[in-house]
């Protein structure tokens, strides 16, 4: 298994349960490959980031201005 294939399986693991043989070869690969280990963690982080985003994180709280709003810094 190479990294292209391993990342593909790691990605699919977010949508479906991998088979035992897929899991076994993936484990074997990631045991030796720090890049793919990091990739696996990162796509889980991507999921967390996405969930946070859809809950409105990162969409800035409008400033509490007194009566007027959004006239920028002109």
């Amino acid at each position: 298994m190479n990294c292209r294939h391993a990342t593909r399986l790691l990605s699919e693991a977010q949508e479906r349960e991998l088979s035992l043989s897929e899991l076994a070869s993936l484990k074997f690969h990631t045991a030796m490959c720090v890049g793919c280990r990091n990739f696996g963690r990162q796509i889980q982080t991507l999921r967390k980031i996405s969930r946070a985003y859809t809950l409105g994180a990162g969409m800035e709280e409008p400033e509490k201005t007194e009566g007027r709003s959004g006239d920028g810094d002109s």
């Binding site: 190479n2 990294c3 292209r4 294939h5 490959c33 720090v34 890049g35 793919c36 990091n38 990739f39 963690r41 990162q42 982080t45």
Partner: peptide, 14 residues
């Protein structure tokens, strides 16, 4: 060409 990360592209620890 063998499907392994190029060294510069290998994901790092976040």
């Amino acid at each position: 060409e063998r499907g392994y990360w190029h060294a510069a592209e290998r994901p790092v620890h976040w």
